[in-house]
Write a protein that binds this DNA or RNA. Structure first.
Lengths: 108, 108
DNA sequence: CCTTACCGTAAGTATCGCCTTACGGATCAA
DNA sequence: TTGATCCGTAAGGCGATACTTACGGTAAGG
């Protein structure tokens, strides 16, 4: 999955991650989306271009508007890559890590 | 978990992710680790500093060597953050994404 | 003690990334 | 057609970052 590079780079930027999270709650046209951020609309467009290239979001035209939404397949691909990374990464430490992982997860 | 920014930024760089994956397979001293990459040893040291600040790796002194290994707790923290991001991110699309996620996972 | 091996830090440089403003294409209403 | 809205792209500035070489500090060995 060679998207992993682009996907991680996309999520690494705080603004882009915020855009992603906002689209996650609800699909939005670019203008309405950009209104929620302190940067210009073209800046948001550029972020969206990266997010879409990374297959984290997708868009659909509706009149003059472009409606952006999250891309479940790209997200699933990234999850698979990361799961495999963690399992390879944890090797001998797998037991300890899983324990630490579930400890906080099971007791919120 | 405010580490998420630093952790994602750390993994976004291909060289740094390669370093992380290599340490995942086996803890290594800096010199031996750097020998596996086309960049200088100080460059590797700088990457390790970022990875350690992000709690993705940790190190231990052994004579004149510094042995670096992955940090299971930091990794677990990132996993928790991402899991929560996915669940918030997928909302209505959760079913579809989970399906797509497990489809490839269950049939390797 | 002196030398050697191992490593981190500092300084400098070139490239990359995020932002802005300016501009042009596409769609809809009047 | 004309005008207004919505949006993407282009060009440029500026700070961040990923490298290099040079240097200093620490530990082991002769």
């Amino acid at each position: 999955m060679p998207d992993a590079d682009a996907q991680l780079a996309a999520l690494a930027d705080p603004t882009r991650r915020a855009i992603f999270e906002r689209l996650a709650r609800k699909p939005l046209p670019v203008g309405e989306l950009a209104a929620g951020f302190p940067i210009s609309r073209p800046a948001v467009s550029q972020h969206l271009r990266l997010l879409e290239a990374a297959r984290l979001v997708e868009h659909e035209k509706s009149g003059t508007q472009n409606i952006y939404r999250v891309n479940p397949e790209g997200i699933a691909a990234l999850r698979r890559y990361l799961d495999q990374l963690w399992s390879r990464a944890l090797g001998d430490f797998k037991a300890a890590a899983e324990a630490s992982y579930h400890r906080r997860k099971d007791r919120p």
